[in-house]
Nucleic acid binder design. Structure first.
Lengths: 252, 252
DNA sequence: CGGATACTTGAGGGTTGTCAAAATATGTGG
DNA sequence: CCACATATTTTGACAACCCTCAAGTATCCG
């Protein structure tokens, strides 16, 4: 990647993310670099955006991890995605006015809010940026589809394996994975369960099984893929759906 | 809605669909009316587009019903969405080159293929059409999220109820539902199961339960919502996520 | 009318959930 | 840097929702 040197570190995260989807000429990078970023801190377990809100800006996640979620009437929670630095978890609010889900901070987060107006102006003048942003929302949708496939037709073991492959691949694509197999995902087993449609107890048992099989290891919020091909096989993981420009490790 | 009178019936279906999401001035309607439609017939159970394809056009469903699906290694199928006349089920191929799932015809279908080039040209010149198309893909994503929520955290009964509410609401929005509670959804119980992550047998039993409760009735491919508020309550159905411009029946 | 597809029913089993509690890790104030 | 409160992980027993298998019935369509 050819990252324009005069970008702020915050803008660079955005550019790096979009550039993982579509090659962005320096002019487009510069245009992104001129976007207003209203930076704020959000505490753990606090909403960045709540269901029912009608945002007038999109949030760029700069530091920390967040999730998309929705609550049921009985208080159960469904997590629909995990987000890391560089993600625009409520980008869809650009064209879909009312939030039909919330974005919550899984860890203390630093986020930058970009006014809708500025983004819409870019989409009127910069077709490549439009394509990149649109594609980002499309990859989101592709991820939802794969989760759907997992929830509908895969075992708990395969689902968990798939999630770990996916988060690793996404982290890798934006230079957040340290090496060929380690990455950060600061979520509790209860949160994994809420994401995968499983109980905490069952998540725990299946994780133990994956460890026993030598497929993964974990130390708190850090996860390690011990046997990539094995894990990918259990998961039936094929990264095509992430539509990344740059190749991933062979096994993924 | 103010449908431009000089549209072909096929183009009108597209305009009616996009207009259900965003108000389209006549100039935009006219621009849509000039799109090339390469019309073809697709037989039941044949793919309109297959997983792995790299389409150079988007298909507009003109007549019939289709579904998005993906197969697992063991042959199981996950259906990710149902599509009706007016839908653009592979619109995402505009920006995401490789199909990560297939589009299959559930009934004999008539589809019109629109060249990517023409759509991309529109997105460069007509911001409202861009917004409408983008929003269409965003509503798709919202529907995936709701299915995800259902599969993860709802009972089979609630999931089936939700699907019926949703298809009714979508059909209503494009004038495909005959009255306040009847609509067409020509799918077998096996297909419902593949969509909802359930076995055929269980779908059957739950449908009987919904009928016994007086919530629905069905005659072959036609479905009737007998008790809208009751069904919506079981489903926890709230149509906000469909982001429709025009109101739906009170209960939905 | 006949074959195929779809729907229905019954019996039994398995993956996963619930409840409850113990063990361990984490974090904060003194 | 320890002590205690809290959050998280782990374990066990039992139950439930849903699945599989299998067979019978209804429906569609040429």
């Amino acid at each position: 990647m050819n990252l324009s040197p005069d970008l702020s570190p915050d803008h660079a995260r955005l550019v790096r993310k979009l550039d993982s989807l579509i090659e962005l000429p320096v002019e487009d990078q510069a245009a992104l670099g001129r976007l207003t970023l209203d930076v704020r801190d959000v505490a753990e377990n606090v909403d960045i955006t709540s269901e029912g809100d009608r945002p007038t800006s999109c949030c760029l996640l700069l530091e920390g991890y967040a999730c998309r979620y929705s609550l049921l009437q009985d208080g159960q929670r469904q997590i629909m995605s995990f987000h890391m630095s560089g993600d625009l978890p409520d980008l869809q609010s650009l064209h879909v006015k009312t939030m039909d889900h919330g974005i919550g901070a899984l860890t203390p987060c630093r986020v930058g809010f970009i006014p809708h107006g500025e983004l819409l102006e870019l989409t009127r003048t910069q077709p490549r940026i439009t394509a990149a942003l649109w594609k980002d929302t499309l990859v989101d949708a592709a991820i939802f589809r794969l989760w759907l496939k997992g929830m509908g037709r895969k075992t708990a073991k395969s689902r968990i394996a798939h999630l770990l492959c996916e988060v690793f691949a996404r982290a890798r694509a934006v230079d957040l994975a340290e090496d060929d197999h380690g990455f950060e995902l600061p979520v509790t087993q209860a949160e994994l369960g809420d994401a995968l449609g499983l109980s905490t107890v069952h998540v725990n048992r299946v994780l133990q099984e994956l460890r026993r099989d030598g497929l993964i290891a974990s130390h708190g919020k850090y996860w390690e893929i011990r046997n990539g091909p094995g894990l990918a096989a259990v998961a039936e993981f094929d990264p095509t759906y992430l539509h990344l420009r740059r190749p991933l490790p062979r096994w993924a």
